[in-house]
Nucleic acid binder design. Structure first.
Lengths: 207, 207
DNA sequence: AGGGTTTTATTCGACATGGTACAAAATGAG
DNA sequence: CTCATTTTGTACCATGTCGAATAAAACCCT
């Protein structure tokens, strides 16, 4: 943590030429597409417009930069999930489909080929040998499960589900549906098919 | 395709010092753990005992080697799935759990940390920018869906499922369950928890 | 035994990569 | 204006990487 992240940016020396948050976003785009290992710092340097020393000063080495990008992605992605689930008025089906539609919009965002989920698509590979990436991945997956589970619990209390429904089990299946969509997106399955998968999954999960 | 893969190995020159299939297996182990980009040919050379020129002569360049390893993995993995589903006597629940237990055995095989699914864990990352890997990944995912779907269709005809059950939809959910398990294995979730996930998923899918 | 053939082993080279050293540039403070 | 401070830009270095070129070794066939 640096003091005064955005408060009083009036500092002494030469002012920064680039917005760190925008640069982090662009670095994430590169990692998102090519993964951690095959994305070079030169590519990130070109994408952000920052040269390597500036990159290093701002975010640390490549590993730290990736972790920051991953953390940022999880925040963004999970906020979208929570917002989709937040509206208490909508039915369970509608809430779930809002989640899937929102994530699909993320998976198919940007130029170039569809990239699916940044975390699932790139962190999964590194997770085996990298404890920090592994724990960042695990934390995100747990958070997704928890968000779904809370919504299923609410649905059961409201009578949208049978009394003997298991919110945790349904949450894992809802997560699994998102995971399979994330993978298939990178495998080239078109967006329409993925939405169809979400629709059918919701029908089965709802019971 | 090389002529005479295993028939009549009596050839003219110096005999091979290593079994190509065993070497391919060991190469796959390395890719499986570290992914495509961050596994060097030197590592594979050390693991197989073959030096790089021999490796190159036997399998082509790194990319071709990875594709061969991936193809081999899919064959192995899908054969296990089909064998688990083949026994027509067992109930749907038992058949599904045999699939999941079989795949879990693969995901947690070998020394070192759990590696999950080789295809999902490593090909997903490369799939965006590599058309060959992408299509190998897509083919495997489709084959898994098809195997599950055939079993669900049989279950419906036998009365193990309701008449209005959608075999394709259930198959995607069964695949999704396997995919989420594959991801979570790499994220460090212990095997027992993953089996619990499979159990609960089967209960929901069966209805 | 000797030639032909295939594989192995050593070595090389061109290149990419991550990280850093150092000087120039751009600002605020005094 | 001058100096301290911070960032930028260029250049550099050590290392790792892939692939290939070449020579040595081990076998079959005549």
């Amino acid at each position: 943590m640096v003091q005064n992240e955005d408060a009083e940016p009036r500092r002494r020396g030469r002012p920064r030429a680039y917005d760190p948050q925008a640069a982090l976003q662009q670095a994430a785009e590169r990692f998102w597409r090519s993964g951690y290992s095959s994305t070079s710092l030169d590519e990130i340097s070109a994408a952000t417009g920052m040269n390597r020393p500036s990159l290093y000063a701002a975010f640390g080495d490549k590993h730290a930069l990736y972790l920051k990008a991953l953390e940022r992605y999880w925040q963004f992605s999970l906020v979208a999930v929570r917002e989709a689930l937040a509206d208490g008025e909508q039915t369970l089906d509608a809430a779930l489909m809002r989640v899937y539609d929102g994530q699909l919009a993320i998976y198919f965002s940007g130029d170039g080929p569809p990239r699916g989920c940044f975390a699932i698509g790139t962190a999964t590979t590194e997770a085996v040998e990298d404890a920090e990436i592994r724990s960042a991945l695990a934390d995100g997956l747990r958070a997704l499960d928890a968000d779904f589970e809370a919504r299923f619990r609410m649905a059961r209390e409201r009578g949208e589900l049978r009394d003997d429904a298991d919110p945790a089990a349904l949450a894992v299946l809802a997560s699994a549906t998102l995971h399979t969509i994330a993978i298939r997106a990178r495998a080239g399955v078109p967006r329409g098919e993925l939405r169809e998968i979400a629709l059918k999954a919701v029908r089965v999960i709802r019971g």
